[in-house]
Design a protein around this nucleic acid. Structure first.
Length: 198
DNA sequence: TTCAGGATGTACT
DNA sequence: GTACATCCTGAAC
C-alpha cells in the first residue's frame, strides 16, 4: 500500500476524518522498529467555526501554531497534565483544522505496543486490558511512543505516516457527537466523530 | 458492568 | 487560579 500524500490531507476536514478510518498509522521508532495500527476512530476539529478547537476563531498561541501548518503535519499536545493526543493537520496551510485520532487496532508489532501500554507482551494482557488496548487518544499515543517531541512532524517523512488501505464497508461506519467537549456550547452537538463498529 | 475520584502540568484568564 | 479533545483504580452492584 502507498503512503497518503499531502493532497489527501489538504481537503475538507470532515472528509479526511471519515476517509482515515481503516487506514494504517505507521510509527517508526528510533530503533528502526515499525509499529502499525489501523485507525478505528476519529474526530474533526475546524478552527474557523468550532468552539471545541484550540484554534477557534483563528486564535493563535504558541500551542496552536502547529494547526496552521501545511496539511499532513502532526499536531500533538499534552492534555490533563499526563497524556498526549495525536492529530493530523488538514485543509490549506493557514486554515487551523485537524483530525484527532481517537482509537486503533494493532496490525504490526502488537507486542511492542503492549509493552509501551502495559509493560508486557500481548499474551500477558488481561481480558480487560485487551478490550481497552488502543481505544482512546491518550492510549494510542502511549502505545506508539508519541509525545510533544513529535509535535510538528511531517507525515510525509520517515518517522510517522499513514498508509492507504481499502475503504471499510460503509455499513460499519458510524457517526456521532464528539467526546469530552461539553464546554463547547453549540459545537457539542456537531456530528464530527467517526468510528468503525468493531 | 458502571461510577466517582484522583493524578498531573501546561495554557491561558 | 481554572480548565482541560484523558485514563486508571477501587468500590458497589
Amino acid at each position: 500500500m502507498s503512503r497518503l500524500d499531502r493532497s489527501f490531507y489538504g481537503r475538507d476536514t470532515l472528509t479526511v476524518a471519515r476517509e482515515l478510518l481503516g487506514k494504517h498509522l505507521v510509527r517508526v521508532l528510533p530503533s528502526g522498529e515499525r509499529l502499525v495500527c489501523a485507525i478505528t476512530e476519529t474526530e474533526a476539529y475546524i478552527g474557523r467555526m468550532d468552539k471545541a478547537c484550540h484554534a477557534y476563531g483563528y486564535r493563535r498561541t504558541a500551542r496552536t501554531e502547529t494547526l496552521y501548518a501545511r496539511p499532513g503535519t502532526a499536531y500533538i499536545y499534552l492534555i490533563y497534565g499526563m497524556y498526549c493526543c495525536l492529530n493530523l493537520v488538514t485543509e490549506a496551510e493557514g486554515e487551523p483544522a485537524a483530525v484527532l485520532i481517537r482509537g486503533g487496532r494493532p496490525v504490526e508489532n502488537g507486542d511492542i505496543l503492549a509493552q509501551h501500554r502495559f509493560g508486557c507482551p500481548q499474551a500477558g494482557m488481561t481480558p480487560y486490558q485487551r478490550k481497552n488496548f488502543l481505544n482512546g487518544p491518550g492510549k494510542l499515543c502511549r502505545a506508539l511512543a508519541l509525545t510533544r517531541t513529535q509535535n510538528g512532524l511531517d507525515l510525509l517523512g520517515e518517522e510517522l505516516y499513514v498508509l492507504d488501505a481499502p475503504a471499510p464497508d460503509l455499513s460499519n461506519v458510524r457517526t456521532g457527537k464528539r467526546i469530552g467537549i461539553d464546554y463547547a456550547q453549540e459545537a457539542v452537538d456537531f456530528p464530527w466523530r467517526f468510528w468503525l463498529e468493531d
